[in-house]
Simulated scan of single mutants.
Amino acid sequence: MNNSVFQDLVHVQSCDTESLSLSNVTGKTVLCYAPAQAAITPPRAELHSLINRTIEAGAKGLIFAQYTVNLLEILTSCEGFMSCALVDFEIAQRIASYSKMTESPVVKISPAVSVVGNGVLSPYVASFSSRGPSLAFPRILKPDIAAPGVGILAAERDSYVFHSGTSMACPHVSAVTALLKSVHPNWSPAMIKSAIVTTASVTDQFGMPIQANGVPRKLADPFDFGGGHMDPDRAVDPGLVYDLDAREYNKFLNCTQGLSDGCKSYNLNLNLPSITVPDLKGHVILRRTVTNVGPAEATYHLVVEAPAGIDVSVEPSVISFTQGNSRSATFMVTFTTRQRVQGGYTFGSLTWSDGSTRSVRIPVAVRTVIQDFVADTS
């Protein structure tokens, strides 16, 4: 239902049952704007019940103020009952100020429009997307990768609907995995994963850093998107991959079940396309091995983006492959903290580049600590 004329506007703050009952909202458009409560009741959890309460109160329109979060599919609950619109807090503040300063405020909700192409900020990380670090396995970076998962047109029964969530992102990653396997049938699962992670993009279509929705919106980091937003075209020819065989996964499984010794060192040296050091007290040395899946003759130079407050050294910083010799090379990475603090995570990356088209980037996350089982809770 769309408003074709202006309607009376009433600002009802949080729009809880009591506030709606105390306000004369019948036949009016209600502004629900209570930013102080957003951290207590997330918009995704609140909006559906709020729509029902507003309809029951007799309102004919709803303007819901929210931080940057994806809620459009929930607005289908308004269809046939009232016009609904989503605005951010800045716009809501302007509407609220207008309502307060005007004796008889009115508003008209116009039909939504679609914006495509260069007018759209994309990609960005959805507010509901799972975030790291991994609590059970802090030395394993999670998530691994980001993929399209918001407002995806999906088949449902005999029709199509827009859905969001992991159920939408997973098919994208699965499809890219299948395509890579068809091009490289001899690649292991770890090689395919590495190709996807190390060639992902950390910038949007304008070359700006990817942003992450939340409270507030911020620049995304590896705990938001892992290696970044996947890029299938680049993944098909990564140049280098970080490989693992089933025996390594079995050793990791034994570590998770307490059946092996030396698991801390093993987890740090697990040949993943990422590095996470959750408890750096002074310095630590770990290793990674890359396998050349590109041209037999190739030289790669390392570009280091060091996490803030951390010194990073890598040996060697140049690796060369020649015809007839080994297609694998191992390098050692040393992280040294510049301050003794019980700190938070800082982020960086290690990127092997052949100076041409291949750039193989792994994300790095490091947290400094003074001692175990001590947290900065102030």
Results as ranks from 00 to 15, higher is better:
239 G>C: 06
198 T>F: 03
151 G>I: 02
173 V>H: 00
279 D>E: 13
345 Y>F: 13
181 K>W: 04
106 V>M: 10
215 V>K: 09
59 A>K: 03
293 V>S: 09
28 K>P: 00
219 L>P: 01
134 S>A: 00
116 V>W: 07
112 A>S: 11
212 A>F: 02
6 F>C: 03
26 T>L: 11
351 T>V: 10
176 V>F: 03
286 L>G: 08
341 V>K: 15
95 I>E: 05
289 T>R: 11
251 K>L: 08
186 N>L: 10
267 N>V: 01
296 A>T: 11
127 S>M: 05
268 L>V: 00
342 Q>D: 15
132 G>R: 00
328 S>R: 13
118 N>E: 14
109 I>M: 01
236 V>Q: 15
361 R>A: 10
78 C>H: 07
62 L>R: 04
368 T>E: 10
264 K>P: 02
32 C>Q: 01
167 S>G: 09
266 Y>I: 00
174 S>T: 11
268 L>E: 00
329 A>N: 14
118 N>I: 08
200 A>M: 08
250 N>D: 10
306 A>M: 04
372 D>G: 12
231 D>T: 09
44 R>N: 03
129 S>C: 06
129 S>E: 07
338 R>D: 13
264 K>L: 12
107 V>F: 02
282 G>V: 08
167 S>E: 12
230 M>V: 12
308 A>M: 08
138 P>W: 02
305 E>P: 01
371 Q>P: 00
302 L>M: 14
268 L>G: 01
303 V>N: 14
217 R>C: 06
375 A>M: 10
105 P>F: 05
375 A>E: 14
73 E>V: 04
79 E>R: 15
272 L>P: 00
285 I>H: 13
149 G>E: 02
249 Y>L: 15
158 D>R: 07
80 G>E: 08
304 V>S: 09
288 R>H: 07
375 A>R: 13
194 S>E: 06
293 V>M: 08
330 T>I: 06
170 C>S: 15
182 S>K: 12
129 S>T: 12
79 E>P: 01
346 T>P: 01
35 P>L: 08
339 Q>W: 03
303 V>R: 13
258 G>P: 00
252 F>R: 12
171 P>H: 13
36 A>R: 13
330 T>R: 15
130 S>F: 02
248 E>F: 00
16 D>P: 01
282 G>D: 15
346 T>R: 14
151 G>S: 10
196 I>Y: 04
189 P>F: 04
152 I>T: 03
33 Y>F: 14
364 V>T: 14
28 K>L: 02
32 C>N: 01
222 P>R: 05
369 V>S: 11
289 T>F: 03
370 I>T: 15
131 R>Y: 01
217 R>V: 12
163 H>C: 07
144 D>L: 03
38 A>V: 09
284 V>L: 07
359 S>H: 13
35 P>N: 10
200 A>R: 05
185 P>K: 14
355 G>Y: 02
131 R>H: 03
